[in-house]
Each structure stands twice: as C-alpha cells, then as structure tokens.
C-alpha cells in the first residue's frame, strides 16, 4: 500500500455465523448445500454467550455481531483491540423495517424508541465497544458489497501507518423475509440460477504480530470503476495458487468477474457464495474462508468452479470482489510462515 513502511499484517483469528454451521470450520469437510433462494443463518445458543438481561432488546444481527466478536477476542487473546471497525451494507435492517412499518402503517405517534435506537448502522460497532468497554478507534462502513472490504481497508491503512497494532474487523448483514422480497424486486437476490440470499456475520482479529496466525494479508486494493484498474493495481508478483471470486450464478454479477479475468493471474478459480449465500457482507465470509483454507493448507474440492480435485499445499490466494460491477477489491492473502 503505497510508500509507507510495509509492516506485515496478519489475520490472527476469524469466525462466522452464516448458513454454515455457526462458529465452526465444518463447512470445509461437510458443507451445507441448498437450492433455496433465501436461507437465514443458523444461530448458536446465544444464552451461552450473552446474559439475557443484556441481550433482551437486541435484534439477531446484534447478537450475532456480539457473539462473533467475543469469540474472536477470546480466541486471539486480545480483549482490548485498538480498533473496532465494522462493515454493513444495510445496517440493522430488521429494526429499520420495524420502525418504518410502524411509521407507514400506524402514523407518527407512539413509535418504539428501541427500534430507532437500534436501526442505525453504527449500532453494531458501538455495541461491541460498549460490551467490551473498548475505548479505541471505532468506525462503521456502509457501502453496498464492499462494506466489509472498506472496514478491512481502514484497519490495514492504520496498521501500515503504525497508528495501531491490532484491529477487530467485523462484517454484519441480516435479511428479513420482507427485505428479501424487496431486494428480489430490485434484482439483487432471488434470481433464476442464483445462490441463496443469506445473512452474514463475520469477525476477525488483525494483528502485526506474526505469532500463531491464520494467514498474512499481503496487499489490498479497492478501485471504483473498472476502467481505473491499472497495471499497477494488481500485485500479481509471485505464484498464485487460487483465485477466490464471489460468483453467484446471477448473470450480471458473474459477468463483472469475467470482464476483468484477463487482468488476473492464471490459477484455478474458487467460489464461496454457493456455501455462504449472497449478501452485502458475503465478501467478509470469502476472506474468512480464504484465511481458514490457508491455515489448513487445503482448498476443498467443493470450492472449485471447475470441479477439480482439492488443492493441497495452498500458499497464496487472490481474493476478488466487486459491488454491482462498479467497485472492485483485490486482496492478496498468504499462508503464514
């Protein structure tokens, strides 16, 4: 990233709540595959993580965000990260809809303050801050399909600058049945041949400390409009074992990847949205999946687009994501040495 001293950045721990078994890597061996057009996340037993008095007001997205954050903090032994940064495309859409529904159907009186209070996008990151008494940097990105990527970029920039040494980066989106029907009308999900619309909560701890990590983040770029993707955008020096893309079976989404294939290094193409679903935070699950594959050194066959064999000894994965074919992100991840 530019001319700043290249401090190395690692993903120490990462976890998820999604269509796959929650907070587990069992998808690598026993992936859940579905033909539904809309699948809600499988939630863990929240009671094991949150006290009922504390969580009674919280919507699902907030419980998932808290639990994944708590698990990652605990597993990485970093209870007080120097930054908490979240990406969310739609924010707390369930509470937003509850408030909107009251507003549109019952009028402008007697509205529930809790719905409003928990409708704003930054509720997630600030709740993680409040829950853990974390006073450091705290921010929230909401930019469609690159919301998580933006949060990741913020963390990487601050770590490269030496402003912080670790950061809890999270991505959270939920889809209610009504919002699924709305997004289906817009053509974003629920289309013929498309992977299911899913929900996504992902949390990962980034550190500059090389000890005991899942993988290294070598390079990150974000580019608006494909005509701005230049020769210098892609760090393709050295061998790449696989390229992970957000292919979803939806025509315009997949075309946006094909449009830039010529600029990418040659390597087997992997996908993840058939396991984790389509959502504005899907790319966060892609980064999570890539980190776990690098840790294990294995790419399961189910990830390969060409139906080939599992890839063993995987060392370097290139992760490509885009939002509406307008904004692209490129992430180079490497097995930790």
């Amino acid at each position: 990233m530019g001319n700043v001293d290249r401090r190395r950045i690692y993903i120490k721990r990462a976890t998820h709540i999604s269509i796959q078994s929650p907070m587990s890597e069992s998808w690598m061996r026993e992936p859940r595959l579905t033909r539904e057009s809309y699948v809600r996340s499988e939630d863990p037993q929240f009671r094991e993580w949150l006290n009922p008095m504390e969580s009674r007001r919280l919507s699902n997205i907030l419980k998932r965000a808290l639990v994944t954050a708590i698990k990652v903090k605990r597993d990485s032994g970093i209870e007080q990260p120097e930054a908490v940064i979240t990406g969310t495309g739609l924010g707390c859409i369930e509470n937003t809809e509850l408030f909107l529904n009251q507003l549109c159907r019952e009028g402008e009186e007697l509205l529930k303050p809790t719905y409003f209070m928990q409708s704003t996008h930054n509720t997630v990151s600030s709740l993680i801050g409040i829950n853990g008494k974390i006073h450091g940097y705290n921010s929230t990105y909401s930019h469609k399909g690159v919301s998580f990527d933006s949060a990741l970029m913020d963390a990487i920039v601050q770590m490269r600058l030496g402003d912080i040494n670790n950061a809890l980066v999270t991505g959270n989106d939920e889809i209610t049945p009504t919002y699924f029907s709305i997004l289906k009308r817009s053509g974003y999900v629920g289309q013929e041949g498309q992977v299911p619309a899913g929900e996504a909560s992902v949390a990962m701890m980034l550190t500059t400390d090389a000890e005991d990590t899942l993988c290294e983040i070598e390079d990150f770029k974000m580019v608006y409009r494909k005509e701005n993707i230049g020769e210098d955008t892609l760090n393709t020096a050295g061998p790449v074992d696989a390229i992970l893309m957000g292919l979803s079976g939806e025509r315009s989404n997949d075309e946006a990847y094909r449009d830039i294939e010529g600029k990418l290094p040659k390597a087997p193409i992997l996908r993840y949205k058939h396991l984790f679903g389509e959502s504005y935070t899907a790319s966060g699950l892609g980064v999570y999946a890539a980190a776990q594959m690098l840790k294990e050194g294995t790419v399961p066959a189910v990830m390969r687009v060409d139906g080939g064999e599992p890839i063993e000894g995987v060392r370097r994965i290139f992760v490509v994501n885009h939002s509406d074919g307008r904004e692209y992100t490129f992430l180079t991840m490497r097995r930790a040495e």
Partner: peptide, 29 residues
C-alpha cells in the same frame, strides 16, 4: 429500492462528477 442504502447515495454523487478512483461510505451517525 437500490437508492436506499448509504453506498447508493455516495455513488449517485460520485457518478455525477465521474472523477473518483475509489469510493466508500462511512456511517457512524
């Protein structure tokens, strides 16, 4: 429907000028 989210608003502004090479949106109230 597609103009609802924060990112859509930012892109509407960005595309009016068409000069930006990277675009993102922050939402911290």
């Amino acid at each position: 429907i597609r103009t609802h989210d924060c990112g859509a608003t930012t892109e509407l502004i960005a595309d009016h000028f068409g000069i930006f090479t990277m675009v993102t949106s922050i939402s911290t109230a």
